[in-house]
């Protein structure tokens, strides 16, 4: 798993993708930093992370995940992985963790907003850290969907569109019927912004991630049957 993680993480920064993702993320962060904090003279950073997660992930998750398996399949490098003794679980987790690591890097950079606010007032560091935890969890959920989308097609664009479609759809689908509300990952990111770690939300996001990771593993393990 470690070797896959290392290679994938490196790949993000060997291609422009890693930088583009961090760039877009910081742009979205900055916009919401202005809108939610600066404009109101507020020291609350919770809504900054909430809105960035809500809108930023819609762009970021597909960019980070669309290549994961689709590109390997198209380039044929999938053959190298599937014929080596490494287990598919390691491959899938390695790739997911590499994408999460890129998000964590952005979050580390986002500390700068904290320091900007700190210059003017006294923001709550605990709330910030709770928000970051929630942000990582909600990102993992979004990335796991993207990863799954990437595993079912060899076309990166299609994988990306599926991911965007799912994330946009999850904004509205709960209005259709409450049954679907658990598909909306942002529903599990309601209490983090106020600095509360809710067990329901943590478990909700983790199980969401686990579900789509498991789906990806199943799809990849079944590849040899359908090829």
């Amino acid at each position: 798993m470690w070797s896959i993680f290392k290679k994938e993480f490196k790949s993000y920064f060997l291609s422009p993708i890693g930088y583009v993702v961090i760039g877009i993320f910081l742009f979205v962060f900055s916009v919401f930093f202005y809108l939610t904090t600066l404009e109101y003279g507020s020291v609350d950073l919770g809504s900054l992370y909430y809105y960035t997660a809500l809108y930023g992930l819609m762009i970021i998750a597909p960019i980070l995940t669309m290549r994961m398996f689709a590109e390997e399949r198209k380039a044929g490098t999938e053959q190298l992985i599937l014929t080596s003794p490494i287990s598919m679980i390691d491959v899938v987790f390695g790739k997911l963790l590499a994408a999460i690591a890129v998000i964590i890097i952005t979050l580390l950079i986002s500390f700068m907003y904290f320091f900007i606010v700190l210059y003017f007032g006294t923001p709550n560091i605990t709330v910030l850290l709770v928000n970051m935890l929630g942000f990582v969890l909600v990102s993992s959920a979004a990335l796991s969907i993207g990863m799954f989308a990437s595993s079912i097609t060899e076309n990166q664009i299609i994988a990306g569109i599926i991911t965007i479609a799912f994330l946009i759809m999850s904004l509205f689908i709960q209005d259709l019927n409450n049954v679907f509300s658990n598909l909306a990952i942002m529903n599990f990111y309601q209490k983090f912004p106020s600095g509360v770690i809710s067990l329901t939300e943590v478990v909700g996001l983790l199980s969401f991630t686990a579900m789509f990771t498991a789906f990806t593993i199943i799809v990849m393990q079944r590849r040899k049957l359908v090829k």
Partner: peptide, 8 residues
């Protein structure tokens, strides 16, 4: 078709 990772 010798698949390789081009950016390595």
């Amino acid at each position: 078709g010798v698949p390789l990772y081009g950016d390595l």
